[in-house]
């Protein structure tokens, strides 16, 4: 793990130093680390499918939503609003507000997704918190691209398979809170951002202020807004001394 931040985006786009063995090892390591997130995502997907159907929605609603929207927190919120009788307009608005952050993530990872139209259009759909974190935690462009696609494709498959199983099988898993999965996802993000925070004081300051702002705002504003407010933490992200 080296820097998460590179100042020159055109540097290191070729895996020139990597022989095939090294590339194999990289893929294996990425699959090993990602597979845990896929498993956790799949189980949360099962609970999403089960909750939706148990609340009275037809099976196609969680299944179609997972394929087309593919954003866990937005899906849970939208279904929550629907089941609480909030109506489809409020459900869509809540989900959209939560997903505004994907625009910032898409901009941050655009250079690792690929150049062709199919790559851009397909890759955009795979932009999620976990996949972006996985990609940005890699040392160079080639690894970042591999991490984005491996993590993204696997998580998409696991999430949708989980939702389908949950919608069909219902509450067979019981209470998923008992497995502590709600702690696993923040921990995944901790593990992935820590190397970058360790070596960059400016980033640490910005992230700390951002997190405080988000936490302070959480009780007062709609879901999705707090993390956007966190971007104000970037005011502490000054220029590099050399720049």
């Amino acid at each position: 793990m080296r820097s998460l931040l590179r100042t020159d985006p055109r540097r290191g786009t070729r895996p020139s130093a990597d022989g095939p063995d090294r590339a194999d090892r990289t893929v294996r390591a990425l699959v090993r680390d990602s597979s845990l997130v896929w498993l956790a995502g799949g189980i949360v997907g099962v609970s999403f499918g089960a909750i939706s159907v148990a609340g009275g929605l037809p099976v196609w609603v969680p299944v179609l939503m997972s394929l087309l929207v593919y954003a866990g927190s937005a899906q849970f919120s939208a279904v929550g609003v629907l089941l609480a009788g909030g109506g489809p307009f409020a459900a869509a608005a809540t989900g959209l507000l939560l997903n505004t952050r994907t625009a910032a993530f898409g901009l941050a990872v655009a250079e690792f997704i690929g150049e062709g139209r199919p790559a851009r259009f397909l890759g955009a759909h795979l932009v999620t918190d976990e996949t972006v974190a996985f990609a940005l935690a890699q040392p160079d462009s080639a690894h970042r691209r591999a991490a984005f696609w491996i993590s993204g494709a696997g998580l998409f498959a696991a999430w949708n398979a989980g939702v389908l199983i949950g919608a069909l099988a219902g509450g067979a898993l019981g209470d998923t809170a008992a497995y502590g999965l709600d702690a696993a996802f923040p921990a995944v993000l901790v593990a992935l951002v820590l190397p970058a925070l360790r070596m960059d004081t400016r980033l640490r300051r910005s992230a700390a202020l951002g997190a405080l702002l988000a936490l302070a705002a959480t009780p007062a504003v709609p879901a999705g807004v707090p993390v956007l407010l966190a971007l104000a933490g970037l005011v502490l992200y000054g220029r590099k001394e050399a720049a």
């Binding site: 910032a104 972006v132 974190a133 709600d182 923040p186 997190a211 970037l234 992200y237």
Partner: peptide
């Protein structure tokens, strides 16, 4: 280049805010 740099930093700031709110809060509490 400056905007690129801010976007990368912004992604990390967002992820840290997500892990803080996701780790400590549920439904606004």
């Amino acid at each position: 280049a400056r905007l690129q740099e801010l976007l990368s930093a912004g992604a990390v700031v967002l992820l840290v805010a997500l892990l803080a709110t996701g780790g400590l809060t549920e439904g606004g509490g």
